[in-house]
Amino acid sequence: GKMTGIVKWFNADKGFGFITPDDGSKDVFVHFSAIQNDGYKSSDEGQKVSFTIESGAKGPAAGNVTSL
């Protein structure tokens, strides 16, 4: 299901970062391709987002990331 969290950091040059879930669980990796914004796929530190957890090649990753 959908979770909410805060972007801990995001490196636009490398195209990835981490989200800290609101439920206190482990930080989740986020790749720019998962960000659902139109246009520039980046996110700012401290941005509140909703997301799903997908199982990626390197473990859990955020999917369907949407700014709230």
Rank of each mutant, 00 (worst) to 15 (best):
1 G>K: 14
2 K>H: 10
2 K>S: 08
2 K>L: 12
2 K>R: 13
2 K>P: 09
3 M>T: 06
5 G>K: 00
5 G>E: 01
5 G>I: 04
6 I>D: 02
7 V>K: 00
7 V>S: 00
9 W>F: 08
9 W>T: 00
10 F>M: 02
10 F>Y: 09
11 N>C: 11
11 N>E: 05
12 A>T: 11
12 A>F: 12
13 D>G: 09
13 D>P: 04
13 D>F: 11
14 K>Y: 10
16 F>L: 03
16 F>E: 02
16 F>S: 01
17 G>S: 00
18 F>R: 00
19 I>H: 01
19 I>C: 02
21 P>Q: 02
22 D>R: 00
22 D>V: 05
22 D>M: 07
23 D>I: 06
25 S>L: 04
26 K>E: 12
27 D>I: 05
27 D>T: 03
28 V>P: 00
28 V>T: 01
28 V>L: 10
29 F>Q: 01
30 V>L: 14
31 H>D: 06
31 H>I: 05
31 H>R: 05
31 H>W: 09
32 F>P: 04
32 F>I: 14
32 F>K: 13
33 S>R: 06
34 A>I: 04
35 I>G: 04
35 I>Y: 13
36 Q>K: 10
37 N>T: 12
37 N>W: 14
38 D>Q: 11
38 D>G: 13
38 D>M: 14
38 D>N: 12
38 D>L: 14
39 G>N: 10
39 G>L: 12
39 G>D: 11
40 Y>D: 09
42 S>G: 11
42 S>A: 12
42 S>F: 15
42 S>V: 13
44 D>W: 15
45 E>V: 15
45 E>P: 15
46 G>H: 10
48 K>P: 09
49 V>K: 00
50 S>Y: 08
50 S>T: 09
50 S>W: 08
50 S>F: 07
51 F>V: 03
51 F>Y: 10
52 T>C: 09
53 I>T: 04
53 I>K: 05
54 E>A: 08
54 E>M: 12
55 S>R: 11
55 S>D: 12
56 G>C: 09
57 A>E: 11
57 A>M: 11
57 A>N: 10
57 A>D: 10
58 K>R: 13
59 G>M: 04
61 A>I: 15
61 A>R: 15
61 A>T: 14
62 A>K: 00
62 A>S: 02
63 G>H: 13
64 N>C: 10
64 N>K: 08
64 N>W: 09
65 V>P: 01
66 T>K: 12
66 T>C: 08
66 T>H: 10
66 T>P: 02
66 T>N: 07
67 S>Y: 15
67 S>R: 14
68 L>G: 05
